[in-house]
Design a binder for these strands. Structure first.
Length: 301
DNA sequence: ACCCGTCAAGTCCGG
DNA sequence: CCGGACTTGACGGGT
């Protein structure tokens, strides 16, 4: 078994958090640096926690540098951020935990609205800048969904492809993920193959929005890099569509293992509300069954 | 200390 | 054309 696990953004009680929110009306050099410093401090602490738990991957919050891509963000602030971020690169690398990012619903590369696409590109450039400044390798990807349908899925997909082709720098770190409503894993594999982008497989989204696809072809989009998958469980009856449960069901993980087969190394981000508690519970259940997970180089610390 | 209105951004749906 | 859902909690001003 060469599957490694990981958590995203923060601990379940938010005592450690890389994703602090800030009001735009409160944005200033002082508040920005204060929030960023707290996010950075907690980022290192979350890497330590990940190491101690034997986790191989961690998703950095998109609000790591709040409003970094907003027009009211002063360019000069970035220099001060950089002077604090760059020195962290060595320490981050030392842990050997894979870092990735996943901007939210507002990054839409296939929108017919030029302004929306421009803002999305700015937001992605900020994500790339963070990973570049931390000196992280190509496996540190930025994951996006394919976007909206706009009443014509084929045309919407074509628009996504055109945006990626017209902005070649995106191919350096961009990855695409199946969503729970519009674009299936089969759609993502098709687009990934055409554009040379790796495909992140979200198993919960796949169950809500199923398709037939070839796992070998999905793995091939990674060209030898370790694929990233997402896993979460349904909270059960009478809840909102697509909502994530507090914990991840062992059965869901075992189904994913079955789908994966013996294809080699894999990083799985557990997207459960209880974050590290959910992962700890899953690890314990797997140990009880004698199933071994892959650990990061820093484990045990 | 606690309450509760408000929060950058997009898209889809129903009225 | 508009408001609500989605998701979703956390910020922060007011008490």
């Amino acid at each position: 078994m060469s599957i490694g696990l990981g958590i995203f953004c923060s601990t379940s009680d938010n005592t450690l958090n890389t994703n602090r929110k800030m009001r735009l009306s409160k944005l200033s050099r002082e508040t920005l640096l204060k929030t960023f410093k707290e996010n950075l401090r907690d980022f290192i602490e979350l890497l330590k926690l990940s190491c101690s738990m034997g986790l191989t991957i961690f998703r950095l919050g998109s609000n790591f540098i709040p409003f970094a891509s907003h027009e009211r963000f002063d360019e000069s602030w970035l220099l001060e951020v950089e002077s604090r971020l760059r020195p962290a690169a060595r320490e981050v690398k030392r842990y050997g935990v894979r870092i990735t990012m996943h901007p939210g619903q507002y990054v839409v590369l296939n929108s017919p609205r030029v302004k929306v696409v421009d803002r999305s590109l700015r937001e992605l450039a900020y994500h790339f800048w963070v990973l570049d400044t931390l000196g992280l390798p190509r496996e540190s990807i930025v994951v996006v969904h394919l976007g909206g349908l706009y009443g014509d899925k084929r045309e919407a997909l074509r628009r996504f492809e055109r945006t990626v082709e017209e902005n070649e720098w995106l191919a350096r770190r961009l990855a695409i993920e199946n969503d729970e409503r519009y674009y299936t894993a089969a759609d993502a594999v098709m687009a990934g193959e055409r554009l040379g982008l790796p495909v992140v497989f979200d198993y919960y989204h796949h169950k809500l929005n199923p398709s037939t696809f070839d796992m070998d072809r999905l793995v091939d989009t990674w060209r030898g890099a370790i694929p990233e998958f997402h896993l979460s469980s349904s909270p059960g009856s009478s809840r909102r569509f697509g909502e994530h449960a507090d914990f991840v069901r062992l059965d869901d993980f075992l189904e994913l293992v079955e789908l994966w087969g013996d294809r080699g190394m894999l990083d799985v981000i557990v997207e459960s509300k209880k974050k590290e508690k959910a992962v700890a519970k899953l690890i314990e259940e797997l140990e009880h069954r004698g199933i071994k997970l892959r650990k990061p180089p820093c484990y045990p610390s």
